[in-house]
Nucleic acid binder design. Structure first.
Length: 232
DNA sequence: TCATTAACTGTCG
DNA sequence: CGACAGTTAATGA
């Protein structure tokens, strides 16, 4: 899999692949296929490098001490997975699982470090990426503190809509109710009940696992309204 | 056809 | 709101 004809133009490796020093590193890239539900990073496992998603959908999750899973973020074409591990810690703090059949590009930690030493543009872009990730997780903490279950579910649906979009009125991602609760930070039953109410209110529609948001602006409005109320 | 999994509902603390 | 139990529907070996 050559970087030069990769469709993911926002991928940081692709963006800098024309730099002279990159040639020697790109040959060390490994491509691998992951089938749906397959995990390629296990929480607590020794760090073995950095992944870039070439095609497919990936969920990044973390398990709490009570066995509760929390979905941290999603990754699709061009996104980075496993970036918290290399250099600093010895073990991954997260797990990464393919939600669809997925093609991954892998670099070992040492290759990444050599790359960062020799390609300043890549280093800067990586740093900006880390800063953005930090911002996201900080605002995530704030949300969790003040939102009730209904708001968490709605917020999660809107997040999926922003990241994956909708085709024919249905979200372009399939999650089980359990996974949706892992994302929203609640239980499967609460998600099921909230989805049922939203369906009766004709805010969403469901076709088995598939969920469609009928009026994005309306749900957005409800979130901001409720958040304002909670601030007072 | 039977067994397993997922979606859903009722109820209780 | 979370947890448990129980029902129903879909899936597939």
């Amino acid at each position: 899999m050559e970087c030069h004809n990769c469709p993911n133009h926002q991928c940081l490796i692709k963006k800098h692949c024309r730099q002279a020093p990159m040639e020697s590193f790109l040959v060390k890239k490994h491509s691998l296929q992951c089938k749906k539900t397959q995990s390629f990073i296990l929480e607590g496992a020794p760090v073995h490098g950095l992944y870039f998603v070439r095609a497919g959908q990936v969920k990044v999750a973390k398990t709490g001490r009570h066995g509760k899973e929390q979905i941290v973020r999603f990754a699709t074409g061009g996104d980075i997975v496993g970036h918290r591990g290399f250099g600093a810690g010895e073990f991954y703090q997260i797990s990464a699982t393919a939600l669809t059949n997925t093609t991954l590009c892998h670099f070992s930690s040492s290759t990444m470090l050599h790359m960062l030493h020799q390609v300043p543009g890549l280093t800067v872009d990586m740093m900006l990426f880390y800063a953005d990730e930090l911002n996201r997780s900080e605002s995530k903490v704030k949300k969790f503190a003040q939102m009730n279950v209904r708001e968490k579910v709605i917020d999660s649906l809107l997040q999926l809509h922003r990241k994956f979009g909708q085709h024919r009125g249905l979200l372009n991602i399939q999650l089980s109710r359990k996974e949706l609760s892992d994302l929203a930070g609640t239980t499967e039953e609460q998600v099921i009940r909230t989805l049922s109410t939203l369906r009766k209110e004709e805010q969403i529609r469901t076709e088995g696992k598939k969920i469609g948001i009928i009026n994005v602006e309306l749900l957005n409005k409800e979130i901001s309204n409720h958040q304002a109320v909670h601030h007072i």
